[in-house]
Design a protein around this nucleic acid. Structure first.
Lengths: 236, 236
DNA sequence: GACTCAATATGTTATAAAACATAAATCTAG
DNA sequence: CTAGATTTATGTTTTATAACATATTGAGTC
C-alpha cells in the first residue's frame, strides 16, 4: 500500500523554485515571467501532453513526478524519461519547434508552470545564461538517451532492470530511511522503463528479492544491497 | 570496390560553409571566427576523438563522413550517429561540459574546423541566434535518439536493418543515379548501426537482395524498392 | 461484504537472434 | 605473386526472452 510521498508537501511550489530559469534572470525578466505564466495542477494518471501535439508553452515541473513515454510497435510502450522537480517537461519538442513525439503522464500529483512561447523566446534573446542552461540540459539529456540506447539494447534482463532501479534512485532518491526508493511504479511501468515484458519485470524483481538485493512490498521497493545491484547492472 | 565519392570533391570547404554557425554571425563575429579557428584533415579510420576525452573546441565537419559510436558490453559497439557535412561533431559533450561518452572515427576523408571554446562562448553570449541554432540541433538530435532507442529495442532484425538503410539514405542521400546509397559501410558498421551481429546483418542483407528490395555489390548498396523497404521498416 | 476489474505472480512453450563454426572471397604487405 | 589478415558468407546450435496460459491477490465499487 504505497503511501504518497511528496517532496513539496508543506510548501506549494512557485515558479521561483524553478532555479534553472529563475535564478539567472534579471529583476526585470523575473517580473515578466511572474506576470506571464500560469499554473496547472494534475492528478495521478492525468495526461499532460500527447504525442503529436504542438507545444505553445514551456512547461516546468514544480512538484510531482511524470513519466514520458513513446508508444512502440507491438503495443509495448517505452518510457524514455522519468521527470522530477524542478525540471522542464516536453521542452525537447518546444525547442525543436516540432510536435511532441512522446506523451507525458502523471505518476504523482503535479504542479506545472506554463511560460508562453513568446516570453521564452524573449528571454532567450535577452539572457544568454538562460540559453546556456537550456543548451546544457539538452546536451546532458542527449548523453543519457544515447547511454540508455546502448544499455537497453545490449544488457540482459537482469542488467536492464538493475540499471533502471539505480537510475530511479538517482532521479528520485531514497526516503528518509535511506533505502526505500522514493517512487512507486507499477510493474508495467517498471517493465516499460527497462525494455521488457511485465511478466519478466515481475519475475526478475522476484529473483532480486530471493537474492536479498532488494525487498518488495507492493510498489514499495527497498534497495538492500546497492553494491550487488550495481554489479548486476554492470555485468549486463 | 567502392569508389570514393566526395560531396566536396571540387571545392575544398572553408568554415564559411558551416552555415549553421557562419550564416547568423555579424561581420565582426565572422572576422573573429575566421581569425580564430584551425583546420585539420583526417583520413579513413582516423580517430577524431575518443570516449573520455575532454573537448576544448567546437568541431565542424566541413567535408567527409564520420561515425560516432559507443563501446558496448559484449564488445559490440553501437553507432549512435552518422555525421554528414556540414554539421557539428562531438558538440554534445562540448556543450554538456563533460567528457566525450562516445568515439568519432572517419568513414570518408574529412576536413574539420576547430573553434576554441572561449570563442564559442563569446559567440553564444553575443549572438542569440547562434544559441538558438545549437538549441534546435540538440533538441532535434535528442528526438532522433529517443526514436532510435525505441526502434532498436522493439523492431525485429529486418525492420531494424531496413530502417538503418533508410536513415542512411536520409543522411547521405543517393548518388546521381538516384538509387545508390552515397555511403559505403562495412557489414560490421551496418550491424553496429542497427543493433545486431555482423552475421545477421550479412544474412538479412542477402534476404533483401533475394527479395529484390536492394542490390549489393561489395559495400555499394542500391535501393531498388524503397516502398517495400519502408514497409519492412514499419512492420518492425 | 460480495463483486468486478486490474495488477501481480508463476509455470510452459515458442521463437528470434546470438553464439559458434567454418569456408570463401577480398584485401594488404612483403 | 604469394601468404596472411580481414571481410563476407552461410550453416548449425544454443539461449534469452517474448508469448501464452492461468492463478492469485488486491483495490475500488455498489
Amino acid at each position: 500500500m504505497p503511501r504518497r510521498i511528496d517532496n513539496n508537501f508543506n510548501a506549494e511550489p512557485t515558479i521561483k523554485d524553478i532555479s534553472q530559469i529563475y535564478d539567472v534572470l534579471t529583476d526585470e525578466e523575473k517580473e515578466k515571467v511572474l506576470n506571464n505564466h500560469s499554473v496547472k495542477h494534475f492528478k495521478k494518471n492525468d495526461v499532460i501532453y500527447q504525442e503529436g501535439e504542438i507545444p505553445d508553452s514551456l512547461l516546468c515541473l514544480g512538484s510531482g513526478k511524470v513519466k514520458v513515454y513513446k508508444v512502440g510497435f507491438g503495443g509495448r510502450d517505452q518510457i524514455v524519461r522519468m521527470a522530477n522537480p524542478t525540471s522542464f517537461i516536453g521542452y525537447r519538442a518546444f525547442f525543436a519547434e516540432g510536435p511532441h513525439v512522446a506523451s507525458a503522464v502523471v505518476i504523482e500529483p503535479c504542479t506545472i508552470f506554463y511560460i508562453p512561447k513568446a516570453i521564452v523566446y524573449e528571454l532567450l534573446e535577452s539572457n544568454h545564461q538562460f540559453s546556456l542552461n537550456i543548451i546544457r540540459s539538452l546536451a546532458q539529456e542527449l548523453g543519457f538517451s544515447r547511454y540508455r540506447t546502448v544499455t537497453l539494447t545490449q544488457k540482459h534482463i537482469r542488467g536492464r532492470l538493475a540499471e533502471s532501479l539505480l537510475v530511479l534512485k538517482d532521479i528520485y532518491g531514497f526516503e528518509d530511511d535511506g533505502i526505500t526508493l522514493n517512487v512507486y511504479l507499477s510493474r508495467e511501468d517498471l517493465a516499460n522503463f527497462s525494455n521488457m515484458t511485465t511478466s519478466n519485470a515481475i519475475r526478475t524483481l522476484s529473483t532480486f528479492v530471493n537474492e536479498k538485493v532488494i525487498t518488495v512490498d507492493g510498489r514499495i521497493i527497498r534497495i538492500l544491497d546497492q553494491e550487488t545491484l550495481e554489479k548486476i547492472s554492470k555485468l549486463g
